[in-house]
Design a protein around this nucleic acid. Sequence first.
DNA 1: AGCTCATGCAAATGAGTC
DNA 2: GACTCATTTGCATGAGCT
Length: 450
Amino acid sequence: MAAGHTLLSEMNTDKQALTNIFQFLKHQNLKETEEALKKELGIHVTTVSAVPTSSSCSQPEEVADSYSKDTTHPRSYSTASAPVNATILVDDEEEDIEPEEEEEEEEGPRSWPGVARSPGPVQQQSFGPKPVIPFQVPSMLTSPPGPLLYKPPASFPMPTIFTLVPPGLLAHSPNGLINRPLSFPSRSSPPLMSTASGLQSPPALSPLTAPPSAILSKPINTGPTTTPANMNGTLLSPGTQKNTITLASIPDEELTPAHHELKAFAEEFKTKRIQLGYTQGAVGQSLADKGYSNFAQSTISRFEQMQLSPSNAATIMTVLKRWLYEAENPDMVLSGEGQVDPLGPPRKRKKRVVYTPHALSILNKYFLKEPRPNRQIIEMVAEELDLLPEEVRVWFCNKRQKYKTSNGEVEETGPDCPSPFSPQSDVTTSPPPAPVQKNCTKFTIEELII
DNA sequence: AGCTCATGCAAATGAGTC
DNA sequence: GACTCATTTGCATGAGCT
């Protein structure tokens, strides 16, 4: 504690932060938590050298692993608009202090080669001094003892950068989204799911609409990957076509404590979501509204069913846990830098493009002729189909991948050089058999013109 | 009929590699 | 820089319910 005081004395504003925290705890009658926080501060602050401008948090291995693949989700950040405050490190263990920038990387939209994109929604603005105090909430706080039965295990800690926003200050939020107390979704407002309405592109070619000549045969031994092994959805994640392990598929006896915690939270989340009157789609919408990483209804559904990999579930849990806390405590918004996602700035995942049957047909024809088109061809195809070159490139990548998995291992000829096709294969999109091409001879554009 | 949820499929993404 | 591979996650849609 003494060390904590030392640190705090150096960082003026954190006194205010601590005051707020303790007031909050008192207000919530969280005596135990308060004590624990004090205790924890006393312990952990000693491990910190001053962290004047950037905050940091720890990620024990299991969770760190879950983050490891997504570098766009910084695990720590400090505020941009609030006066520079020190952040108190609460968790211990390994540290990784991310270089500032994160928020700047704050992504302008992902850049697509050769294509100028309009910037995404501005997540951070300069509002001048803001009455929010960046603070790293201790893990026990991130899972409020009161409303939440779930207690975060050490192996799945919450991201712990938060800003406590006193209720009275909520109205000062300048952007209408940030720091707004969570409100119940209006039943009259269009739910998230309703976006899947008439404005979408036509569905992809169905097997029946594909020209007979375009129907490939499936390999005699279709691997286990072409079809979900379990159609009832209890063993394999539907969206998981490979050997991805989902939490739901792990036998009880093999579940680690961390897995149990995830499952427990998923159950609790579902229960409380329903109690709060939110549909899965509304949760996704609310996440987006609040500036968090948003997820589609389907992802929320999969989370609740634990049809996600453990690491993926852990990642999503951090967001949902925070969302749930705010939903249950509308007067006390936990926010880091306004409403920054605990995993970093909201993801800017490119909106999924649904290709028209016509586009798919053309793409498949090109794929047949040249599964590995060069840049020039890609650009030509993109122009013809009014797509981005990057979209075309990705389509070919995915197509090769799908082809390879659905047709078994490709030998000499490789997926790039379609081998004589065995009867039946990917019926929806695969092109008709092509002559075996030794050495994957590239086609010229002229040859590719259909 | 309209809403919610579950799920197949595939577009998008990230890590590792060449 | 572009590929492969594994993974994540959104769109579309069907099932079930009210």
